[in-house]
Design a protein around this nucleic acid. Sequence first.
DNA 1: ACCTGAACACCGTTCAAGT
DNA 2: ACCTGAACACCGTTCAAGT
Lengths: 231, 231
Amino acid sequence: MVAESTQERAPLSKERVLQAAVDLADEAGIEALTMRGLADRLGVEAMSLYYHVANKEAMLDGVVDMIVTEISEAADEAAPPSGGADWKTTMRNRILAAREVLLRHKWAPAVMETRTSVGPATLRYYDDLLRVFREGEFSYDLAHHAMHALGSRALGFTQELFDPADQETGDEDMEAEMAAMAEELPHLVEMLMEISHEGAETTLGWCDDQTEFEFGLDLLLDGLERLREPA
Amino acid sequence: MVAESTQERAPLSKERVLQAAVDLADEAGIEALTMRGLADRLGVEAMSLYYHVANKEAMLDGVVDMIVTEISEAADEAAPPSGGADWKTTMRNRILAAREVLLRHKWAPAVMETRTSVGPATLRYYDDLLRVFREGEFSYDLAHHAMHALGSRALGFTQELFDPADQETGDEDMEAEMAAMAEELPHLVEMLMEISHEGAETTLGWCDDQTEFEFGLDLLLDGLERLREPA
DNA sequence: ACCTGAACACCGTTCAAGT
DNA sequence: ACCTGAACACCGTTCAAGT
């Protein structure tokens, strides 16, 4: 009696492969997303995947397309184009919604950065952003600059200064380490001390990501608004 | 007679290993930077590298540190802190110099994004940026927001909309393809047509990277300037 | 049409051993 | 102190073959 036969299992499809890939990365991290690991999760041999995707790169392209589709849907739900709100509110809410999606798929930005071509979902998302600008009476020229200026933030990419788990030192010698750092990095240390005194956290994990994201986004959107209607 | 002996060859060192790694990536691309390939270039067995670096990740950490050191030096040469110029000019010229360095090491941003901890060179570079803000009479709070808002742009990262070689279609059916795209991506297509009519290039490789980089950078710096001196 | 088995070329890395 | 050889576990991928 064979344990798993083709009949007992839903047949593979490109969609099932890509969905499984997203789930695997969500649950076990991007380094777990190998062709062999993905096949395992689908109860199939590694080589079977090659019937549905050309190779690993094509698989990753598909995965990114799924994520961007999710971003697009979230953005449309939060603030559809032609939804009645002004361009800045619409753009702001769309991009904040995009960020929320990426918080659910923390591995995704790194994969997106490795893509060398733009998939259909991304093109569609950009087209929608452009539409919002146009409905806000931007010229195509300014809208074009705006897209570059937003950069990966348009897709919800967060800009972290120091990466999440940067704590390699025990809590004990925090004082001593600070003193040593203070000589070489005086401004960084002073900033740290000042901000930690007034705020919540005392360690290096002090930045409120949501606040910083909105600060940077608003800085750009406000600047664009001024360029749109010169003085 | 043995071809290559330890005596005939300069002995390895961490610095030589890292420099060779940078050179290899420059010449052959990041995918050529394997432990075995790196050893080859140094005329040594792969395992010898492990005497000088803990593992591949540590090697990449070191490589990033070298690049950021190069960025720091270029920034200092272009516009040293306390160099006499106002904060905005100094910051602008430093970041433009950083970008020039990354143009010489196109593979570097992708590697930098994969680092999970911040090296000494990066800390020093950030400390210097902070110093420039402070000399421009920013509060630490605003300077902190500013660093997040600049994000990876502070290190000279370019924000490309579509990646370099996105031309997978022959030149012939450009017209036909445009027509097909126009239905699904009306704004993108219209923008393309408008910009290509007035400008230089006619294809998808139309964006002047330098211009777009400066546009986004100035948008941020101008916005920060306004926040620094409220009305 | 869909999936598999065996095999290949290539990784990073270990460990014990050489000089 | 510095480097090596052999070996291991793991990749992505090919190709011819099975149902």
